[in-house]
Every structure is written in C-alpha cells, then in structure tokens.
Design a protein around this nucleic acid. Structure first.
Lengths: 138, 138
DNA sequence: CTAACTGCAAAACTTTTGCATTAGT
DNA sequence: ACTAATGCAAAAGTTTTGCAGTTAG
C-alpha cells in the first residue's frame, strides 16, 4: 500500500525509481520515530553517499513524500500525511520516547478561529509537546 | 523592566553581568522577530567571538532567559515567557512576516484533555503556523 | 584575589556545490 | 541512447573543544 503511493508520487513528478530512493524511502517508512538527516545518513551508509541522502530528502520533501517535524532542537523526517493520518508528536524529555497523537475537532476549530482573527490563511500547522511520559513522571 | 528581570535571573544563577551578556541580551530583546544563531553571531560580530555567542545562548536558554522556537526549518531564539506573554508564531511563507498570537483558553483545555488521554505530563508546547498573511494571500 | 568568563585556534560535524560517471526508462 | 541521478572531492557553513589570558565581584 505504501509502495503504491510511493510509486504514484514518483510517477507524478517523473522521478526515477532508483535504488537509493527505494532504500531511503524504506529507511524512513520503517522507522518508528522521525529521523534526523544524520541518523538517516548513518543508516544509509554503505548503500549511498551522504550527498545523495541530502538531495533525496530534499526531493522527497518537495514532492510530498516526506515532511519534516521539530523534535526538541532538531529537524527530523518522517513520511508525509499521504501515508499516515495527519498527526503530531509528544516527546518525553526523560526517556526520549515519541508518541503520536491526532488533533481533535475542537483543536481544528480553534485554528480556524485564529485564521479569522488574524486574517491569515493557515497552510500548515505544527504542534509539538514536550513533557514526561507516564513511566518517567514518578 | 526587562533589565530588572534580566539581572534577577543572572543573580539567581550567580552569573556575572558581563559586557557580552548585556550586548547579547540586548540584541535578542530588541529584535522584532526570533533570530537564528547565525543571525545573532552576525549582529554581535566585532563585539565578541562566535564561541561566546554559542556559550551564552546556551547559558541563557538553560536559565530561562531565552527560549528557542521553530520557524520553518530553523531554530531561532527569542526572549522567554519571563519577559513576554506566552505566545506562538504564524509565519508567512511568501513574505516571511512573523506574527505572534496567544493561545485561547479553549486551546489550553484541549491540551489538558490530551494529557489525560495519553497519560502524559506536558511541560512545554510548541504551536507553529505556516501560511499566507492577508497581503500575500491574493 | 580567584573563580568565572572570554578569545583564539583548531577540530568536529553538517550541508552544499561542481563535475565526471553511472543507471533508469 | 538520452536524461536524470549518483559518487566523489572539495568547499562552505555551523557548532564544539581545549587552553591561555582577561575580567567581574
């Protein structure tokens, strides 16, 4: 299923389905948490050059295959909402565990209110929560 | 007023009120928008070494004088909520204009609901909106 | 005076660029 | 075969480290 969308997007933008791209897509798709550029370079090392990683991440991001999210200080990458339900992250500052959550209707309604109030068209919203998970909070 | 809080925090952590720190605090305090490390280094150049900038930003962040926010791809710095009302940013992807907004009570209530639902204690939340401001949206 | 802070030089790490070679369709 | 994609080497940019010298309290 994910592969089908992957191929469709490559096709849509007339991009070749190269080995590097398949490997990189797989690395990101199979990770349970968002990965930083460096983490991806490490996991891809041996298979491709880091230059290719940067270029491919850029391509993947521009075509909507992946998106970047802010986790703490870093920018990390994960599959775009084309593959997963739109969601956000809460990360535990103690153990580093990253939990995904979907926003509620009420929250979306609040964003719409902000659009009105500030006369601003919201194309994208990022919500990031930091704190302590149940195991680390006692 | 800001200076008073600045001095109090330095005092609280037994930090010296050095020239570099005063200059750096002033650069951040007087900027209308959050600044990246590089932007701060540029503005401070001539006055101090970049090493000092990095070390000072680190100190300022740890002591709660400043905080970092995600604007697009970058991490930027601004005064912490000790100086300003807690707020978030919406940035225009066309002209780059950054507008601040305060979150509503409803939004906070939603965050509390999330704490319950996911059994997670939220210490900090980041909300970042990207889109187009009124002037750029037509 | 002396502990904290800073500057400098160098290293480490991250990202970008140009060009020659290779691989995909 | 032709173009897009990759690898390599080098440059550019960013952040960190160690140490010697300086400064604030």
């Amino acid at each position: 299923m994910q592969d089908k969308i992957y191929l469709e997007i490559l096709d849509k933008y007339s991009l070749s389905n190269t080995k590097s791209r398949r490997v990189l897509f797989h690395i990101i798709a199979s990770s349970k948490k968002p990965l930083s550029a460096t983490e991806i370079i490490d996991r891809a090392s041996g298979t491709m050059d880091k230059t290719t990683v940067y270029r491919t991440l850029d391509t993947f991001e521009k075509t909507g295959l992946i998106k970047h999210v802010s986790i703490g200080w870093k920018q990390k990458f994960e599959l775009s909402d084309n593959f997963t339900h739109h969601h956000h992250h809460m990360s535990c500052i103690v153990c580093g565990k990253v939990t995904s959550f979907e926003e509620s209707y009420k929250l979306l309604a609040e964003l719409e209110r902000l659009e009105e109030a500030y006369r601003f068209i919201i194309d994208e919203h990022v919500i990031e929560l930091h704190g302590r998970c149940i195991s680390c909070s006692r």
